[in-house]
Amino acid sequence: MSSSLTLSTEPTAQRPRRLLVALGGALIVATYLFLVIVQPAEIAGGMGSVASLVSLFGFLGGGALLVGGILPTLTTSSLVVMPLGIALNIAIGQIAGSLGMQIYLDAIGTVLVAVLAGPAAGAATGALSNAIWGLFNPFALPFAAGAALIGLLAGLAAKHGAFRRVYLAPLAGLVVGAIGGLVAAPVAVFMFGAAGTFGTNAIIAVFRSMGDKLLVAATKQGLLSDSVDKIVVFVVVALIVYALPQRAVRQFPFARTYRVLGARSGERTAQPAAGNDRVA
């Protein structure tokens, strides 16, 4: 009984453009492999320009293909939280600064969207986040693929229960951060000669003074600092989502379907003490 005021009962689900997503993913992987395998030639010069071009186009283009493949499949309920995640990524960096935090925390929005709306929305949020951030800080631009990967992995982790227990979140953060650090290192090296903050560069300097190649040193540094950063980010996001009212979580089909969050305290059967001492 369809009428002018009702929708047909068959939901018109849009097919994901798997080809684009696959191409984008393949491009990112190929770029990474190329950079890692070719790297010995890099520092001696010669391949430098090719390597930086490849990292720019491979990672940026891969990110763009991913976004192009993912976006049409997203429902509006996912779509409306993505700008929020992007704005949070950028704004929380500022709050963290104003409160004097020592870590960036620039992926809280990405991980939040991934947990609520799923890996696809998370990946798109990460990629677009860095693309938009590039307007304010061009150094964020080439890391778009890495940010997409963080969103994707965070969403997959959430799907498989990494947020059902609060203590699982930092473990997931550690793993995701390590992978993210691995992927980000060649971008930093080939685009900017691994330039970063004084803190990260000091770590690289230590490895360099021990004779490591720049890429190796940057990778080790990435593994170290990204893991710490993502552990904190995952914990923060876990604490936030458990503080959300159920109604806010229920509006997301992904979070509902995969029971992303475990049994919650704060319901009628308030659990005593455990994790409750945030004020203490």
Binding site: S77, V236, L239, I240, A243, P245, A248, Q251
Partner: peptide, 23 residues
Amino acid sequence: LRALLTVTTPLVIGLLVDASERN
């Protein structure tokens, strides 16, 4: 970290409420 959470939690809740209306 705790200070960050006291600011971020209401921020996210407020934005999600808006987002649901925007949906």
